[in-house]
Amino acid sequence: MKARVTVSLKPGVLDPQGRAILHALEGLGFAGVHDVRVGKVIELELADGTTPEAVEEMGRKLLANPVIENFRVEVA
């Protein structure tokens, strides 16, 4: 089974990387981009029967930093 953990910066946390991408998009002539936020997607290959709770715990303990990041788990 697989799980996908999407880690994103909490609202309000400044994202300099997102801002640089926003400026680059503007430089390419894309109008109407108001904000860009960069996160990461972590794909996990798991033993069958791994519970979503266990994956949540992985998120809390390591995959995301609760000070600055939120995460979402999708188990397939």
Partner: peptide, 17 residues
């Protein structure tokens, strides 16, 4: 130390990148 929770806050990418 911040990642270990022994100090508060987080150290992020420099504002100027």
């Amino acid at each position: 130390l911040t990642e270990a929770g022994l100090l508060p806050g987080a150290l992020m990418r420099n504002a100027g990148l």
